[in-house]
Design a protein around this nucleic acid. Structure first.
Lengths: 346, 346
DNA sequence: GTGAAAGCGCTAACAC
DNA sequence: GTGTTAGCGCTTTCAC
């Protein structure tokens, strides 16, 4: 571990001052091209590694963009991250990814950690548990741009990127109706979270648009995990609700329902149609493959990163928060497409 | 964005010096308990936020641990990360996660980014493409502890955490043999990567231990992705190799094979048994659920983080790299368990 | 086009 | 137990 080269070493080597070296390395046009070249060559020769920490301390900019997601272990979040990286890296930012594991305290800690690390901005999909936004306000007060995606709130005056959940759910429901399914259930979660509220509304309005009465009894609220999906479907079967299709606001919920249906030898898609939300890898591996509302997660990431860049660019002139709403896409797989012949059999 | 409180503000407020404040905040025992309490109260009152960047610059320690994985979007890696976080957070470190997307240039960039960010250590599972370890040597020369997991190499004198791939493969193969499968194929990848070499060896020696001849024709080398698994299985069927079971060195490869078998109406597990490697969520969702060699990924993360902590603790006394080998576990699901009655039918 | 000088906020060796 | 002092390596204002 030999001593590291600093700009002073380069300066000494070239008989100029550290300020010149600093400017040259940053390609400051006030430095002559010749000097810049010289300095840059010397930097390579001396194996100079810039100390970002020193630069960050002095300039107040770390060139690090923080990201907080519930978990990176889901296609949706990991491709949002990928989308953020694409844009951020090009603009010279590195990303620092944190996981809240959908836990509030954890999220508070991570916000603090990013704040202490001096990140230049934070992009967040907040934890399911989060009801209080104090920790995010701290960021804002600190002047650190905050951008939310997926889960949004009106309690914060910040830019947001969401998909049109209403539309996605509407399309899913309409698709099932067009396949001839008559009694369509809906798995939802906490009505306070806007994405679930919107998905419920999309489902409801699609039914109404097609003259199918909305039935409160067909709405199942849960945490939407695998076990919840199983429980809800068991309830449907137990009560003899004569349901023949499902729009689940989550992939896992749909998966749970599917397991139960198969255990009861109910044929999918002929006797029962399913559409889920969020495009997890496994959804195409199930038997039959699950239809889903795809959220174009990479584009969500792109947009969020762009909003961040805009916000730091508009530095002084007060930035006006924007809300970007992306269109979802219905991916139709076998779980919701009835085959003609088998339809007749029923 | 009001001016931030610094230790000097606290010092002024309490009529002490900044160093006292610094010590008090760090719970330095040389400061009287009374002063410490006073300082900590004042810090809260003045809404003091420590500037980690300044501390990092001064102390040379950032309290950030870097992680580079191919992608966080896989159960294996995300739970390794979780395991690292558990240990690292407790020890006061924050983690900075980077994804190489299995691309060499990307990996080089990320190493540089972490170096510039001044991380105190880096834990890596390097990209499949990586053949050259110069970028990692840079880290080592810089005095930054490096710990490898999963993929290991002898070209670097660093600590490593791996699972006993040989054993995992041996167990998987033996299990299939015990179920009465007779001609077992193996899907492998680049023989230069030690995990694949070891898995191949485990397979081979398990066969030999049970008096089953090893047949070169039953080894299929590919990238082990879904398409590769499909292609290999199609080849098996096309050539009429009479294979009745498979040990795949990847989950995706096993999945691809399963798809093809189902398309050909070959019954799993009765006519064909499958065991995969790596425990992805989706493996329990397939039909039938896939047996797998579980790698205890969280424990890999724990161990890697512990190695890191040991290494920085041993600061001057030259640290001797350690290699930790964890035992894998065979998770038996339906894809490899023959049922008595159906056995007779064949 | 380059230099001099100040300092970002913190820590740590050395005093006493 | 607390203060003094000197930077960590860099950027940036103000000179000329």
């Amino acid at each position: 571990m030999k001593k590291k080269t600093t700009i002073h070493d380069i300066a000494e080597n070239l008989h100029v001052t550290a300020s010149t070296v600093s400017r040259a390395l940053n390609n400051n046009p006030r430095i002559s091209l010749k000097t810049r070249k010289l300095v840059q060559q010397a930097a390579i020769k001396l194996n100079y590694q810039p100390n970002n920490i020193a630069a960050a301390l002095r300039s107040g900019k770390s060139n690090i963009l923080g990201i907080i997601v519930p978990t990176a272990d889901r296609s949706f979040f990991s491709s949002v991250i990928y989308g953020i990286e694409e844009i951020a890296n090009t603009a010279g930012f590195n990303v620092m990814i944190c996981q809240s594991h959908d836990n509030y305290e954890n999220e508070v800690d991570k916000v603090q950690a990013l704040l202490n690390a001096g990140v230049d901005g934070v992009i967040v999909s907040y934890a399911k548990e989060t009801k209080d936004f104090k920790h995010f306000k701290k960021l804002i007060n600190n002047g650190t741009p905050l951008i939310l995606f997926d889960r949004s709130t009106n309690e914060l005056e910040v830019s947001q990127v969401v998909i049109d959940d209403y539309l996605g759910s509407y399309m899913a429901t309409e698709h099932l109706i067009s396949q001839g399914y008559l009694r369509i259930a809906h798995f939802t979660s906490n009505a306070k979270i806007s994405i679930y509220k919107d998905r419920l509304r999309g489902y409801q309005e699609a039914l109404e648009a097609h003259g199918i009465p909305f039935d409160e009894e067909l709405i199942f609220e849960s945490n939407l995990q695998l076990e919840d999906g199983r429980a809800s479907m068991l309830e449907i079967l137990g009560k003899g609700l004569k349901v023949d299709a499902l729009v689940s606001a989550s992939a896992m919920g749909a998966m749970g329902a599917m397991q139960v249906l198969k255990e009861h030898k109910i044929k999918i898609p002929d006797q029962f149609g399913i559409v889920g939300f969020a495009n997890e890898t496994f959804m195409s591996f199930t038997d039959p493959p699950l239809s889903t509302v795809e959220q174009h997660s990479k584009r969500i990431g792109n947009s969020a990163a762009e909003l961040f860049l805009q916000e730091i660019a508009s530095s002084q002139s007060k930035f006006i928060p924007q809300k970007i709403v992306l269109k979802p896409e219905l991916i139709i797989r076998e779980s919701s497409v009835r085959t003609g012949e088998e339809l007749k059999k029923i």
